[in-house]
């Protein structure tokens, strides 16, 4: 089924929701507008470089902090096809699935993959391939219901379609 492929933007531990989408922009809830400020306080050039399909890779506790769903919304609207991390903060994890942003926990991949690498993620098998280095990593496969939520672009559409 679906796979993601793109260039990697690599970040470290504890990327919090305030740097993913600073609160000064939370007076908007429009995905396209939020996307124009995505990652602004950690990587000002992200929005000018990101291409549709690109992948974010980070290490521990990605998405910690506030419950703002605007964070995964901004990432998804910026064109990112998947976020890979060693661990995710729990509210971000839930929110990402609920809005249909694919996320994968994989410790090995999170530390080995470097900024700028081309990476491919197969959602059925959970297989992550670093095309640049040739390395492969076994991430968690997406269970069918989660793939359906992603295909439906979020939990609400998925529930409605049932």
């Amino acid at each position: 089924m679906k796979a993601a492929k793109g260039t990697v933007f690599k970040y470290g531990d504890n990327v919090d929701t305030d740097v993913i989408i600073p609160a000064r922009y939370l007076n908007s809830s429009d995905p396209a507008e939020l996307a124009t400020h995505c990652m602004e306080d950690i990587d000002a050039s992200f929005v000018t470089k990101v291409q549709k399909g690109d992948i974010i890779v980070a290490t521990k506790n990605f998405g910690c902090g506030s419950s703002r769903e605007h964070a995964p919304i901004a990432i998804k609207a910026s064109g990112v096809s998947c976020v890979i991390a060693d661990t995710f903060a729990r509210i971000f994890y839930r929110n990402a699935i609920n809005i249909g942003l694919p996320i994968v926990e994989c410790s090995e991949a999170a530390y080995a993959i470097q900024n700028g690498d081309t990476v491919e993620v197969d959602f059925d098998s959970g297989l992550i391939t670093d095309v640049t280095t040739g390395q492969t990593f076994k991430g968690q496969a997406f269970p069918p219901f989660m793939q359906k939520i992603i295909a439906a672009e979020g939990l609400i559409n998925y529930i409605n379609a049932k």
Partner: peptide
């Protein structure tokens, strides 16, 4: 839908933050 919803645990409740979809 606010991460600091966990505050009410002080009273012996289970309370937790979620996102807007939840």
């Amino acid at each position: 839908a606010d991460s600091h919803t966990c505050t009410y645990g002080a009273l012996g409740a289970f309370s937790t933050g979620v996102g807007s979809t939840d």
